[in-house]
Amino acid sequence: MRPFAYQAPDDTGAAVRSVAERPDAVFLGGGTNLVDHLRLGVVSPGLLVDVTALTSTEITEVGGGLRVGAGVPNSELAADARVRSRYPVLAQALLSGASGQLRNMATTGGNPLQRTRCMYFQDVSTPCNKREPGSGCSAIGGSTRNHAVLGTSEHCIATHPSDMAVAMAALDAQVLVLGPDGERTIPFTELHRLPGDTPERDTVLEHGELITAIDLPELPMARRSRYRKVRDRASYAFALVSVAAALDVDGGVVREARIAFGGVAHAPWRARRAEEALRGATVSDESFAAAAAAELTDARPQPGVDGGNEFKIALLTRTLVATLRDLAREEA
């Protein structure tokens, strides 16, 4: 591991200035992903600026919704009584991620910024455009079982690994950011980028910008919401596909739906076409499957030496149908 300096400043402003003035500086949160990457040689920063003691660890009521400090551990966010009753999809998404130990370490601000678990990205002996721009993509034509089917580019087919982020995207959360030029708010659905020809950039954050909190807006329909995750083992594994959904049904007809997909794209994938297809539709497996089809029109499964990932189309369709069916039953 390349040597690096460590700083634990007194406040977020000082932390932001420290990172902003050094191109090779990074923020340290829970460290669950960064420390592993330091060890693997995926990244080699010159300075780590520890923000774990600086950002808020409080969850507070704000305008009918909740403001979650960036320092709130994933475990405590999932355990919060208000989150469990008002946004069950978020509690379930958090609980389906990682392990008890990791959820105690991982933070609300750090979780969305974790990097892809693409095995080629994490293996420094293979080319990867995300790790080393211009070196090529080893995943395309390689093992693609865990890779994206939506929004890919010829440069990168990695997926975003976070479960929490999928729920946040469905809930229309807002990301509060402090940067060298002041504060700004970014809709959660616009935080993550698609790879395009710059897959090295996961998000729209500029160097030195720090997530200080995430706002969950008031959303009564989210009281009936669910997260369903399909993976290769029953626990402690990343999603092959996942669905975060909230459903508002009146007399057997869908009034409104909120849907996001995980495990299928470079970003948590807000499924607005599926939501549109469901508005006014009769509650039935057929209309739920039609909503999935509407969203997946542009899906491009990847061939691969491991059999590829075309299975994700059918798997995601069935997962969406099952999730919405459960929610409709809950409404009845």
Binding site: Y6, A8, L28, G31, T32, V35, D36, R39, L40, L48, D50, T52, S75, S99, G100, Q101, L102, N104, M105
Partner: peptide, 29 residues
Amino acid sequence: CDHGQCGACTVLVDGRRVLACLSLAVAQD
């Protein structure tokens, strides 16, 4: 594993279970 995948290094920090392999010691001051 030294990569946060096996749990053999689990300790309690301020009473909460965490992975010692993914914790930097300087950050535990």
